[in-house]
Amino acid sequence: MSVLEFRRRPKPKTRKLDWVTMVMAVPTVSALGALGYVVVDQYEIPINAAPLVSLVLPAPSPERRVQFEMCSGSHRHTCVVDGDTIWLDGENLRLEGYDTPEPYTAICGGQAEVALAKRASARLLELLNSNAITVETGGLDGTGKRTLATIRIDGRDVGDILIDEGLARRWPDGNEWWCQAG
Rank of each mutant, 00 (worst) to 15 (best):
V81I: 11
S61A: 12
A112W: 08
P58C: 06
N129A: 07
P101T: 04
Q42W: 06
L128N: 00
I47G: 11
S54A: 02
D82P: 09
T100W: 00
K118E: 11
A117M: 04
R65I: 05
S130F: 06
P62W: 09
E91P: 03
R76I: 02
S121G: 14
N131H: 15
G109Q: 04
G83P: 02
Y104P: 03
I86P: 00
I86E: 00
I45Q: 13
I86V: 12
F68K: 00
G90M: 04
P101N: 07
T78Q: 01
G90W: 01
L128P: 00
D84W: 00
E126I: 05
E126L: 10
E44I: 07
N129F: 07
R123D: 02
G110V: 12
I107S: 05
L57Y: 05
S54I: 13
L93C: 08
A122W: 05
E113K: 06
A132V: 06
E91R: 10
L57F: 10
T134E: 09
V56S: 14
E96P: 00
F68T: 02
Q67R: 13
G110R: 02
T134N: 05
N131I: 06
L95N: 00
N48R: 12
V38T: 12
P51C: 11
L52V: 15
V39W: 05
L93Q: 02
C79T: 06
S121K: 10
E69T: 15
R64C: 10
C71G: 10
Y43E: 09
F68C: 08
R123V: 04
P62Q: 15
L55M: 15
A120S: 13
M70D: 08
A112G: 10
Y98L: 01
R65T: 14
V38A: 07
P62H: 07
E63S: 15
A106G: 07
A115R: 06
Q67H: 14
H75S: 15
E126Y: 14
A132D: 13
R94V: 01
A49I: 14
Y43I: 09
V38E: 09
D99R: 05
R76C: 01
S130L: 12
P51L: 09
E113L: 04
A50K: 09
M70W: 04
R119A: 12
A132H: 10
T100D: 05
I107N: 07
N48I: 14
V66I: 15
G90A: 09
L88Q: 06
W87G: 03
N131E: 05
L125A: 08
I133F: 05
Y104F: 13
V40G: 09
L125H: 01
A112I: 09
S121F: 03
L57M: 11
R64M: 15
D41R: 13
V66S: 00
Q42R: 15
T105R: 12
P60Q: 15
I133Q: 01
G110E: 14
L93E: 00
Q111N: 12
Y104E: 05
D89E: 13
R123E: 06
G36N: 11
N131D: 04
T105N: 14
A117W: 03
E44T: 11
G83D: 05
P103E: 05
T134L: 14
S61K: 05
L55K: 13
R123W: 03
E113F: 01
A112R: 13
L127Y: 01
E91I: 13
I86S: 02
N92Q: 15
L127E: 02
L125V: 07
